[in-house]
Design a protein around this nucleic acid. Structure first.
Lengths: 358, 358
DNA sequence: GAGAAATTTGAAATCGCTTTGAATAGCCCT
DNA sequence: AGGGCTATTCAAAGCGATTTCAAATTTCTC
């Protein structure tokens, strides 16, 4: 019993080491240890070395909550997802990109899932009021997205992945959906296609509207009238792609080419074409938008798939970078990036078939 | 100037409201307000009502960091992902399930991405030392997984999604991979198939080993010898499925049936079968494991796909629940769940073709 | 070698919450 | 009226870090 010094409280061996413990261990004040660890200049180099070495050896890490309380920064950035719809392959790729960049800064990503738009608004309010995150990634914007206003009112820094027309300055990163689809559609038109189907994303989402703009622009540039029956809006699933393509192929005057909004959609279209007894790349052409999923490679398809390509993972990485810049003080007026989209032609596109009689 | 009371410090309007502000506003002490908000019994019901109403009206939310520091609980659970490989469709479904359950408890999910196993270990140490999370979800275990030991040493509660043979008691939830594959393989054997390919997951992962066990058990039960050339291990991608199925179909004695480890794999197999000029469900049979992705429905395929089915999203929800139970004091010895897997027969399976001469 | 300047360290305040222990007020009894 | 309870409320002490301000020590400068 008396072997244990009474002056010093004996902490549970299992409890994590605190700054105080480390300081006592070193015979220094908490102040000095803290400074040494955080690279302040006013600490003796020999001391700093000793502190760093001991901290490392003892596995000391500042308590995250205490650090956050003291500094006011939470060391995390928030991502609110509408569980069912949004946490799909696109988001996980984006997340992977973001995570990669944030990991090097020891910043975590706080994922909150919600069920409805109302819940989403509530979640933002909650996150803001409780100061859980330093910034937010806003995504999947609608053409007019009130969430932007909300976040601005809440005074929480954020970067928008996509664009919106809300008349407020926001930091954003987006890909040139209009240009991509315009070019792809133009290419199909040049190949002689006149009936081109557009399997677009959910109505109201900015990217979907942008794609529609590009589609219409290409048609109108070549004086080809558009047919609303060839334009559809839905989620990007294999199933929707199949269903839509199937019904369009049964039209009196079916499309000879498809523009699929995602690789998932393309898989369904693919299937519908085959089921109709047609051959992709000969009877029917297909260009899909490729967000570059590592597990679904356009080059490895049969036939290989022509795509408009833009890595959503890279976008995630860059958005993370932009957030760091903003947290570092950069003005959001200067944070706008529009990424070009490649058009990669492969085997799924070919000249329009001559005898349209089927 | 003198209109502003000098006694009370004027806080920036923009700064979030603190408990102190709320208390002053109410003319009560922080203690009472805190208690009222947290449902302690020793506070007058009228007071509680008034506090609750005012807090709500003013949008007060306790500062997360302060709350965490004071209570010692972080209100978050951790998920470490090896970015590139792991953050795919499976994980995002699992995450969606977890998130749904955690959201109702106002618990967040802290996602950390890492690049290597070493980084992963470092990440766990960091997370533990900085007390960022109350618990961890450990996933994708290997047959012998040292991460279990690490987390136990770190004394951080966790639930394992899957199983491992490390000789330590851990809380886990897993699906009956062995049983599922055994039954599916048995069914194919009953249909007369003798050359059945197994496109399994990555070697060393417990679930892959379990599936192999089931496969071998079914074969041996019917006295059918196994052929190592029909067993493969790889990631669950469309591409790998295609490549493996394609090469197997070119064997002298090709398989007449495939067991695909995931829907992604199945898509590739599907393609290889078609490319070989064969018809799925007639010339070749296919059973895929279906984790139930909302965007890839076995029922909507053509032909519809026979599957072993188990919702990974539900698993996520349940794992979240188990974590909550453990944090609530439940002994980990009592937390083990083995979920049965359905075998759903659809059109992609049929009797083995009679004339094997091709 | 004395005083000024620079370097290095430390005590204590602070961040915003919870919680312990004490104080006050109200009520019932005898 | 005073003692004993119970019901409420509050002041102050943590939680574990950072940071301000002051003190102690060393190094210059002349």
């Amino acid at each position: 019993m008396h072997l244990i010094g009474a002056r010093e409280t004996v902490r549970n061996q299992l409890a994590a080491m605190r700054l105080k413990d480390l300081a006592e261990h070193l015979g220094l004040s908490q102040t000095t240890v803290s400074r040494a660890l955080n690279g302040y200049p006013e600490v003796n180099e020999a001391t700093r070395l000793r502190v760093a070495e001991t901290a490392e050896r003892l596995g000391y890490r500042p308590n995250a909550s205490a650090l956050r309380l003291a500094t006011g920064r939470s060391g995390a950035i928030g991502l609110v997802l509408r569980g069912a719809e949004e946490l799909g392959p696109h988001m996980s790729e984006f997340l992977a990109g973001m995570g990669g960049r944030m990991a090097t800064e020891e910043i975590d990503i706080l994922v909150t899932t919600v069920d409805s738009y109302q819940d989403e608004v509530a979640a933002y309010r909650r996150i803001a009021a409780s100061q859980k995150v330093d910034a937010i990634v806003l995504h999947s914007p609608k053409v007019v997205d009130e969430r932007v206003k909300l976040l601005k009112d809440l005074r929480i820094p954020f970067v928008l992945h996509g664009r919106t027309n809300i008349g407020e300055t926001v930091a954003w990163l987006d890909i040139d959906n209009t240009g991509a689809v315009e070019r792809a559609t133009g290419h199909l038109l040049d190949l002689g296609h006149r009936r081109i189907a557009l399997l677009n994303g959910i109505k109201g989402r900015t990217f979907a509207e942008h794609r529609e703009l590009g589609y219409l622009a290409a048609l109108s540039a070549r004086g080809v009238p558009f047919d609303a029956a060839l334009m559809s809006n839905s989620v990007f699933t294999d199933e929707a792609g199949f269903r839509l393509a199937q019904s369009m192929l049964q039209m009196d005057s079916p499309p000879t080419a498809f523009m699929a909004g995602s690789m998932m959609t393309a898989l369904g279209v693919f299937r519908a074409i085959r089921q109709a007894g047609l051959t992709l790349g000969r009877d029917v052409s297909l260009i899909a938008h490729d967000d570059v999923f590592p597990y679904l490679n356009a080059d490895n398809m049969f036939p290989t798939m022509s795509t408009t390509r833009s890595s959503i993972r890279q976008a995630g990485t860059r958005v993370a970078e932009l957030i760091l810049q903003i947290l570092g003080g950069k003005k959001i007026d200067d944070v706008h990036e529009l990424w070009p989209v490649e058009l990669v032609l492969r085997e799924s596109t070919g000249p329009a078939p001559q005898n349209v009689t089927r």
